[in-house]
Design a binder for these strands. Sequence first.
DNA 1: ATAATCACG
DNA 2: ACGTACGTGATTATT
Length: 886
Amino acid sequence: MTKKNKLLLIDGSSIAFRAFYAIPGSLDRFVNKNGLHTNALFSFHRMLENEMSKEEPTHVLVAFDAGKTTFRHEFYKEYKDGRSKTPGEFKEQMPYLRDLLVGFGIPHYELDNYEADDIIGTLATQVDPNEYDVVVVSGDRDLTQLAKENVRVDITIKGVSEIEENTPAYLMEKYGLTPNQIIDMKGLAGDSSDNIPGVTNIGEKTALKLLHEFGSVEGVYENIEDMKKSKRKENLINDKEQAFLSKRLATIDVEAPLEVTVDDLVYKGKDVGKLIEFYKEMDFKSFLSKLDTKAYDEENQIEKAEILFEVVTEVKPEMFGKEGALYVEMLSDNYHTADIVGVTWTNGEKIYMAEPDFILAEPLFAEWLKDESIVKHVFDAKRTVVAMKRYGNEVNGIQFDVLLASYILNTNDNSKDLSEVAMEHDYYEVDSDESVYGKGAKIAIPEDPAVLYQHLARKAKAIEVLSKHLKTDLEKSEQSDLFFSMELPLSMVLAKMEMTGVKVNANRLLEMKSEFATRLTEIEARIYEEAGETFNINSPKQLGVILFEKMGLPAIKKTKTGYSTAVDVLEQLREQAPIVDDILQYRQIAKIQSTYVEGLLKVVHNATGKVHTRYVQTLTQTGRLSSVDPNLQNIPIRLEEGRKIRQAFVPSHEGWKMFASDYSQIELRVLADISNDTHLKEAFLEGQDIHSSTAMRVFGIEKAEDVTGNMRRQAKAVNFGIVYGISDYGLSQNLGITRKEAQQFIDTYFDKYPGVKQYMEDIVREAKDKGYVETLFHRRRYLKDINSRNFNLRSFAERTAMNTPIQGSAADIIKVAMIEMDKRLKAENLKATMLLQVHDELIFEAPMEEIPILEKLVPEVMEHAVKLQVPLKVDSNYGDSWYDAK
DNA sequence: ATAATCACG
DNA sequence: ACGTACGTGATTATT
């Protein structure tokens, strides 16, 4: 006997609506780049995946309600009246639901005058029960009337993933009814959501009782005379007509004149191309990366065009051309330590593949890498250069970086996975690393080397193809200069800084470690004593219980999961119990101990005693760098206790010094330039103390010496607020004043600096028009929420629109300075080396005798990196450690 | 994997 | 009325 077919029938209209409300608060979180809401699509997708993999149907259909009126309106025009209007955020998603279904390869159908129920009922009833098992999925209980021996009706309970499987047996157990009697129940009890009236004062409970006794609506009325006199009997008699009408309304038409038959519903599998298109349109990045195209292709015997390559075991000159792609594979993120597991390159004609141990020792290959005049296209230039260098090979002539270009084109594209980046640019021939190597602890090279080689060959090919495309895209968005003159050269400068690394005095850290350990034990003991018990001080949850329940301190702020025990809360409780001070002390030291002392010791390289951070150049939305493994951009400085950590950062040679230069007020200077505000420019041109100057204007003070410390402090907060995209609330929190007072400050500020006000208005308007904002050097940030109807999202996007050109232009400026600095150090033949960048400062190490040179050269270069309408100002310091360079 | 906290510009 | 300052990364606890 052949296997039975399985027909899956989905009530599209009902499920879509359920999907829309499935995830609480999802409306705000699911919006694509064009501002389209996607929450219903997301949940519908999840339901489809669940059902398809659970049921593995041979036939499938999604049925929709057609239009507003149905045959039911012909005999009851109030049918479905009184429904509240469907939200626009829901409606806008419906057209795209069709695209999703096309991607899943699932047919959909709707029929004039009929509802989805009727389509489903007709198909479920008409198929031969010997040939088909049927599963119906809906959010509407009415459909349970369709349950039969071969028909199961799945009704969503909560969201769209939890379902109740209704079989005749289940219905009998739960209600004591046959599927047909579900219709009678609606006849008596009605259904308010469909505006089916039923009988007055009869609900589900009473209807069940009546049906258990009389079997059906007809049965009830046949026996109505025998009922004893009651209000209910009266209602039944009065509403008799209504009861039969309701039953008729609730009856699913199983003979709808369908134009489709079950033979049209054979499931043929996903259309991966369409699905990818859909995911991209909706910004469903996780689905996109999870889409295992390789496994899928194999299963469906779709063969991707095989990429041809040659495995090199003996190098020949013709393998190396004047231009080509180069790719070096490593399986972990940290390229300072990762093993190279494969090397591939192209010569314009062929793709070559080689085992690293062999090829990296070949002189011909080394020469090719080193030759500046040979053009190389890569994916992640910095990663490539650093790794190669570790294996003794110098790489020159990199003229394109696909990863970096993709990030410049859209800062939202910050994936590190080549296949994801490729898909973002409509190239689908590369499998994800996850599908080839696995993930987590199980990450490994495929057993069959051919699999690895094919994967790498695809990457090489992708680099060739994408380099061309992205180059054109950069021209179109006027970002070629940004890419070729700033980002790509900078990546080489950063590579050098990372490889140089920073010397760490591990002994100093070990001293601190034992000192802090002692102090922590002391404080810990005091805390336990004051609490009257021991507990985990590091657990905000346990700490919350001790403070706010056991000790009865007032809870000032709450987090999603319980009491907040953050610093600003504890500071307010200081006076009320001595334990609070101890906890703050403990926190401060524990943080330094775990993150900085122990954390840093963990990442010092044994051989050199240095740390080698990685600057992530393709991550931030503003153009800043970030630093990982270790993060050297957040080493403590504000509190003396933590600042001492900097004593452990020392020069790598005897007699050398640490030298640091930082921009003074670079963001406000950038603002002065781009806003063109007369007074702000004037303040900088005259070299005034900017916060005092702001204080004078905002508080209406005539003479600088009359500005009090408090005024300056408040003006400083206002200036920060301006840079961040000010809000009254934010400023009020920062200054501990009321929102009204904060708003007063802001109004006065804008009054005194009309150019700044104008800038803020213009930039937000521009962002709303174009959908993005730009920096001085055409770095772009797209703001998808800028026209959102959600106040919070829109406000956030507006503040971002104000802040990004400021923060981003400042980032541009220091990047220019770094490139120039690198050139100058080389040109002047200096031993001094650039080690670190911390957003607005550069840190070097240099022999003492070069310090006087640096004191002139570094500020000179940094201050003249760009020409603004106001001068840039740089302060420099040096000392025996980073701590002393203050 | 996520939330809370806290370090930096 | 809504309810948050902009940009990051590491550690710890907890699910």
